[in-house]
Design a protein around this nucleic acid. Structure first.
Length: 419
RNA sequence: CGGGGUGUCGUAUAUUGGUAGUACGCCUGCUUUGGGAGCAGGUAGGCCGAGUUCGAUUCUCGGCACCCCGACCA
């Protein structure tokens, strides 16, 4: 991508209405645009990051057998009322609904989750024990009328969520999948670059079950508090951090308190959303409700968390796995020969399938290009200038390094970047 | 939802009951090019409504928007 053609611009000033470090950097870098409180647009660079995160999640979900679908955002009122004995249509039970009306006056809900609709849909496909187990997932826009949106893209009113639902014959079979999903989540956070500070965390099961598992990433800006047990690499959410729970989990007494952000969660739903309608027939002809689980991750919140956790005072530091581009190629000065050389390098990088953002802008000082490069935070920076050419090539440095080294074009193209 | 705060060029801000200023951005020209360059010229602004007043961006009230703390967060 030629940076001169990129419609977004970087900004030197910090937006006055953003306190969150991640939102500040993402806005300054032109990754996102604030539409209103709790609602953001994803611009070319930000969308590329989001898609890379999605793809990592997709690969891991596919690997455990998840089948991808997309369900609608508009949802039928009836499903939420009495169909599964939950009546989550009630504003007293769910206070984050966005509701709207059709021209005929009937009320519809804007999806904040999909347990009811997907359970209903599966009545058309699940009849026999032979149909189970299986799991489906989607990347789908959720609407949640949060009383207070906050922290930039970390807590928004409209966001894409990866939600996976598992359907099993019984609890035993469910737990086999649940453990696979847990491992898949661990893989995701590792691949995205926050595995070392993300903890599997025991949390309240809410209305669904006694416990659930959250994945919590340690950061001072987080809104949750967790107690980490380093020996077992596990944590307990403050909301369930009692002597009884500590005893049950046999984790000893060694806990460290940290602030954290919830980047994923997995729930055992049991038969709450299958009874009384989503049933299957077993080997003996008896009918049983399907045993369910749900598993959520918000790609945008993950993106915000990565920025929050991995930036420095100059800007973002993207992990290679989710960086919008791998390499930032900068050409300095206005010298024609240098530009010609830089263009040649750019073409070679493209031919070698290296994802490169080429700062080919003219009339911009070297200092400004460096500052922009640090802000955008691509993992590698290659500089072409009269000086670098005099020294024999291209100066390559990692975003995290102070000084780079001079290498040749051939060497640059032969580097195996990790994505 | 309870409490608090803020609305001024695109962005960040200053000042004022009587002509609204600066920086960045953007446009033109010249110079410059390894850490957010220099000079000159130019561009663009008081959230909406009502009230008080000779006169309101400033004071009062209402609305709207945004932010913060708390509560909430399948």
């Amino acid at each position: 991508m030629l940076q001169s053609k990129l419609f977004t611009k970087t900004r030197k000033e910090v937006p006055a209405d953003e306190v969150s470090r991640s939102a500040e950097l993402l806005i300054r870098g032109g990754f996102i645009n604030k539409e209103m409180a709790g609602v953001y647009d994803y611009l070319p660079l930000g969308l590329r990051v989001l898609k890379k995160i999605e793809n990592i999640i997709r690969q891991e979900m596919d690997a455990i057998g998840g089948q991808e679908i997309i369900m609608s955002s508009l949802q039928r009122q009836e499903l939420w009322q009495k169909h599964f004995n939950q009546d989550r249509w009630d504003d007293a039970k769910v206070d984050i609904w966005f509701k709207t009306k059709l021209k005929d006056g009937s009320e519809k809900g804007l999806a904040f989750t999909h347990e009811e609709p997907i359970s209903n849909m599966m009545e058309q496909f699940v009849y026999s024990y032979r149909d189970l187990p299986f799991s489906v997932y989607q990347f789908q826009t959720k609407f949640r009328n949060e009383l207070r949106a906050k922290s930039g893209i970390m807590r928004t009113r409209e966001f894409v969520m990866k939600d996976l639902y598992s359907f099993s014959r019984n609890e035993k079979e469910h737990l086999i999948f649940y453990e696979k999903a847990k491992q898949a989540y661990i893989n995701i956070f590792k691949r995205i670059g926050i595995g070392h500070i993300t903890y599997l965390t025991f949390a309240s099961g809410g209305v669904f079950s006694k416990f659930s598992h959250e994945f919590q990433t340690v950061t001072p800006s987080g809104e949750d508090t967790i107690y980490i047990n380093e020996e077992n690499n596990i944590a307990i959410n403050k909301e369930v951090f009692t002597d009884e729970v500590k005893k049950d989990l046999e984790l000893g007494e060694n806990f460290k308190e940290e602030k954290s952000v919830e980047v994923g969660n997995i729930f055992t739903l049991g038969t709450k959303f299958s009874e009384p309608h989503l049933l299957f027939e077993d080997e003996k002809g008896g009918k049983s409700p399907v045993f369910m689980g749900s598993y959520g991750i918000g790609p945008a919140r993950l993106m915000g968390t990565v920025v929050e956790v991995l930036s420095d005072d100059k800007g973002i530091i993207w992990p290679e796995s989710i960086a919008p581009y791998t390499l930032h190629l900068l050409v300095l000065g206005e010298n024609e020969k240098v530009f010609k050389e830089a263009n040649k390098i750019y073409e070679s990088l493209l031919e070698n399938n290296i994802e490169v953002l080429f700062d080919d802008r003219t009339g911009i000082s070297a200092g400004e290009k460096f500052a922009d490069s640090d802000l955008l935070g691509l993992p590698y920076r290659a500089v072409v200038s009269e000086r670098s050419m005099k020294e024999g090539g291209i100066e390559l440095k990692k975003r995290t390094e102070e000084k780079g080294k001079i290498i040749s074009l051939k060497e640059l193209c032969s580097i195996k970047f990790t994505n």
